[in-house]
Design a protein around this nucleic acid. Structure first.
Lengths: 200, 200
DNA sequence: GCCCGTTGTGGCAGTCACTGTCACCAAATC
DNA sequence: GATTTGGTGACAGTGACTGCCACAACGGGC
């Protein structure tokens, strides 16, 4: 019942194949653009049938966005670890530090990835859809940094709103970072974006 | 060269056909769901070839989301009319009054539409894409409610961040409104969402 | 009345992402 | 050694969308 179960041979080989196909695909995407790369081209380069490709990836976009699921969980965990004395906005910003570090650790790679996101509408759409999952993941933890709702309100929109706003700032900062070609530190752009909306 | 050129006979008939097909399509969507309605079914009901359908709508989603383009411009105009003494957040909230009125004017219709958005992922994706256009439309006007950027910063992320955050709150409020089946006034949910993020 | 370009239309074939089904093969299990 | 089990490829199909082309319908100039 461990949260991260023993990988198991089956799961490990699966991950390996997945990673290798993803690497091949990302290479093609970077060279020819996401939209101009067909699944047929990917599987031809990876030596695999189209049918099997879709057994490893739910969609073509999933090759690029597959990791986001797990990352969202990490951010949620980081948020849960913030002291309750912080304001929700502050806590969110600090939880995002994880993403800032991740970004700074491999700027070149992320620049390519973010550019792909900017160019391919379908990718952007998939990205935003994953982020709405993040919103649901972050909201409950943000509620802990908030005074309790007026009374037995069944549905408090405030945590969801703060989560959505924080993610909106995150995206805006990432876009700005790409537009500056990575010359302005991402953390700084994120700070500017978030302070413009609410006090840190 | 008028911004709104004389409609002209051609344009008027085009709009009429577009509106009629959209009405037929929305009826099918409401009955069978967006995803389970094919373009073939729509054109069969409307007496039109599939090829012509795509001359009137860029995509199936565009039948539902076609109006959003213009609405975004209205909101931007409303925002431009706000006094510069208001804070950006305040000005955004007041500009959204237009949407609140629009929503309250035809609750039943909007409830159906919002439910469709919640159920069909591709529609949601298209919706968010249109909203990123709104962000670009609103940002420059928000800049007028903000102290000028530090120095000759080429790209100020602050107006874009505020626009994105405000739209995020708007969406959250709309989602909450649907989840409450329209029983809680939309304007109230929007107020709660936006005040949670920044002071009005 | 006739030629004319312009504009809207349907039909047809094609692309591309994605799915259901089925038979096959290899490795694990009995 | 027979049998189950999970991964695989081939094939056909769906559904959104596009390019192309031929064919009206319309209006103006002659």
């Amino acid at each position: 019942m461990a949260v991260i179960a023993e990988p198991g041979l089956r799961e490990r080989t699966r991950r390996a194949v997945q990673a290798e196909v993803a690497a091949v695909a990302m290479d093609l995407f970077a060279r020819n653009g996401f939209e101009h790369t067909t699944v047929d081209q990917i599987v031809a380069a990876a030596g695999m049938s189209p049918r099997s490709f879709f057994r490893y990836f739910a969609s073509k976009e999933d090759v690029v966005l597959g990791a986001e699921e797990a990352i969202g969980q990490w951010v949620a965990d980081a948020l849960a670890a913030r002291p309750k004395t912080e304001s929700p906005w502050q806590a969110a910003r600090r939880a995002f530090d994880l993403l800032v570090e991740r970004n700074d650790a491999d700027e070149q790679r992320n620049l390519i990835l973010r550019r792909m996101l900017a160019d391919a509408p379908s990718l952007r759409a998939g990205h935003l859809k994953k982020q709405s999952r993040w919103q649901e993941l972050l909201a409950p933890h943000l509620a802990n940094h908030l005074p309790p709702p007026p009374r037995g309100r069944r549905l408090d929109p405030r945590p969801l709103a703060i989560a959505a706003a924080a993610l909106a700032c995150l995206n805006t900062a990432q876009d700005a970072w790409v537009r500056e070609d990575g010359r302005v530190p991402f953390g700084q752009l994120l700070d500017e974006s978030m302070t413009a909306v609410g006090p840190l």
